[in-house]
Amino acid sequence: MLTTRDFAANHQRLIDAASALFFRDGINATGIAAVAEFAGVSKMTLYAHFTSKDELIVAFLDKRNERWEAAVQQTLGSGGTPATQLLDLFDLHRQWLREGGWRGCPYVNSAAEFPDRSHPVRLAVDRHKRGMKQHLLDLAEAAGLANPRTLVRRLFMLLEGAFLTGALEHDDSVFLIAKDLAAELIDAARSA
């Protein structure tokens, strides 16, 4: 008889396996059988947890987002002014690029494989990206910066561009450039 603990362990193993394979091989190139085998469970066990591959992909993205949100809260909880915390998010993105094995952003990668904006995978991507923008907006408003929505769009583009460029060039120093540009934008918004 499968216990609740075993069920939860299998569930996590499946998400971990999907994460590793989706990062390594791509989502569309990774079959359900490969995920089950990598997790050390049967296909039937996988389908007891996820009714479809799409559901597994969304679970992978949502679980990663939970980890991301925890990392953001830890970063923001370490102190500093809202303006410096905006810059701290550039350091956090840099760290996640390195820890992700230079494979880029799984949300951008997922969006590329699922172009239909109404698809559940794209909705999970959009939730994550909206959350990122909301953190930036909350900090920009708390810092009393001028035109916070415009500033957030610019900072978001810097973060996304640095993540993409860093992955393509296997060079996280692009975040230092992006962070310098962000500091200039923040200073300009401060004095506006």
Rank of each mutant, 00 (worst) to 15 (best):
R5Y: 11
L155R: 01
A192K: 05
L14R: 02
G100E: 08
G79S: 10
D6A: 14
A29H: 08
L61D: 02
T84M: 07
S191D: 12
I177Y: 10
L145G: 04
G40I: 02
E99S: 13
R127D: 14
N109E: 09
D138L: 13
T3P: 05
A182Y: 00
E141M: 11
D172P: 11
L2T: 12
L185S: 02
R13E: 09
A142L: 05
K63W: 11
A48D: 09
E66H: 07
N109W: 06
T4R: 14
A183K: 01
L181H: 07
R154S: 05
A8W: 11
N65E: 15
A124L: 08
A29Y: 09
R64W: 14
E55V: 14
H128G: 05
R117D: 14
A8R: 15
E69C: 15
V35A: 08
N147T: 03
P120C: 06
K43V: 09
D54A: 00
R98G: 14
E184H: 02
G31F: 02
D187A: 01
S52T: 04
L97V: 13
I27R: 00
P106Y: 06
L159P: 06
R64L: 15
T150H: 06
E66R: 06
A192C: 07
A20H: 13
V125Q: 10
H49A: 00
A143I: 04
A59G: 10
F175M: 07
T150V: 13
A34C: 05
E55F: 01
Y47K: 00
H49P: 00
F38H: 05
R130V: 11
A9C: 02
A33G: 07
R24Q: 13
T165K: 12
L14N: 02
A29W: 09
D187S: 00
R117Q: 14
T3Y: 06
L97D: 14
N10A: 12
